[in-house]
Amino acid sequence: MTSQQKKAFIDGFKDVAQSGLTILIWGFVTGIALAKSTLAVYQAIGMNLFVYAGVSQLAALPLIAVAVPIWVILITSFMVNLRFVIFSLALQAHFSHLPVWRRIFLGYCTADFGYLFFVKRYPKPPSLEERQRDPHQLPLYSLMGMQFANWSFWQVGGIGGILLASQIPNDWGLQFAGAVALVAIVMPMLDRTAARWAAVTAAAVAVMTYGIPLRLNIILAIIAAIIVGMMTDRSPKTRLPS
């Protein structure tokens, strides 16, 4: 790593570490849920380490409890993860020049917070020529720093939750603390009118359609928010003629 790459990595780490407490609490709450499920402690830790996808882990637990066939859980898991399929589009625009295994690993490591801060720091992907001319690949190292922070906080929280679950009484309302911590992440993103409309739309759709299976309410909320966000976005368009 060159010194510039190191700096990009550290800056990326710091970006996500600002939200470290939120990630820690979500991880902890997820860890407690894993520990209180039918999984043994080592199985819960293994799942948290490798699957590394909170919402999908939580969605799987009630299915594991009644031992439904694995393929049913995997389909559920993919549906719950559909938002990442959308996220991978923007990553593709930044990193399509890398070798295939590098891209796959990069995608696997990019969870919600890593992606969120990456597109905040690099909203416009560079052209392919610009990327190939850039010897330092600073966005790549920045993303890796973000991923490392996201992964570390999540694992410390998650494994902590799994190991300490029996000591934590239910009535502490920790699950709600996770939600409050997320409020502090979402609020600063509402800096523009279009973002506010998108958020209100996403909230309304996600709550109204909460009853539909496979947590597909998340993907419906994203689609609705994109439509409303684009309609209410009055910032000048900088779209290039293609």
Partner: peptide, 26 residues
């Protein structure tokens, strides 16, 4: 290559995803 209008559109996706996970909890 991902079209520019798609990249433009999915700018709201990470915010919407977080809100969609958060709102039912609240």
């Amino acid at each position: 290559k991902v079209a520019d209008w798609i990249l433009e559109a999915i700018r709201f996706a990470p915010l919407a995803a977080m809100v969609a996970i958060l709102a039912p909890e609240l």
